[in-house]
Simulated scan of single mutants.
Amino acid sequence: MDERRVAIRRADRPGDLGWMVMAHGEAYDREFGWDSDFEALVARIVAEFATSHDAQREAAWIGEVDGERAGSVLLVSGDEPGVARLRILLVTPAARGLGLGTRLVEECLSFARATGYEAVVLWTNDVLASARRIYQSLGFSLVEEERHHSFGRDLVGQSWRLQLA
């Protein structure tokens, strides 16, 4: 059996950002029944990145399996000085179990350290158990939970933080 080729690259090719939006919309509808409000949120996040990111301090990555897009993540400046935000981590269902999600987050953390951030924060929902396991394995700590109704579902939002310094 051939081993699958897993690679991480910058999201700098035509179609990469649009793929992020589409892949999130499709995956979260299929897996969790989330409505198009979620895809709209991802579209706003990606559009903001596309039009106004600081290339010295913010970046986006695509994970590929056998040369095909299979995952994504963004690292952007957070609301506090010295704090970055990890956003829109996704690994497509067909690419799960290959370590792609961990590699994408590790790429973010490596970039954050090299860029001088002191901490990385993220917001997720408790139903995203695989992502949570990645965050925990890399040292993130849960700092807050809050129930909310979003994307057509009752959810529990979670804020996570990792001190880099």
Rank of each mutant, 00 (worst) to 15 (best):
M1G: 14
E3R: 07
R4S: 14
A7Q: 01
A7D: 15
R10P: 15
R10Q: 12
M20H: 03
V21C: 11
A23W: 05
A27L: 10
D29C: 05
F32E: 06
S36T: 00
F38C: 01
A40Q: 08
A43N: 10
E48A: 11
F49L: 11
F49V: 06
A50G: 13
D54E: 15
E58M: 03
V65H: 03
V65F: 02
G67R: 06
G67E: 14
E68L: 11
S72Y: 15
L74P: 09
L74A: 05
S77H: 13
S77A: 15
G78W: 04
D79E: 15
G82Q: 04
R85S: 08
I88S: 14
L89A: 08
L90H: 01
A95S: 12
G101M: 04
T102P: 02
E106T: 03
E106W: 00
E107A: 10
C108F: 02
C108V: 00
L109G: 11
G116W: 14
Y117I: 07
Y117A: 05
E118W: 01
N125Q: 10
V127I: 07
L128K: 07
S130K: 14
A131W: 05
A131M: 08
Y135L: 07
S137T: 10
F140H: 00
S141W: 03
E144C: 00
E144S: 13
F151I: 02
G152T: 01
L155P: 06
S159P: 00
L164E: 13
L164A: 10
L164V: 11
A165E: 14
A165Y: 07
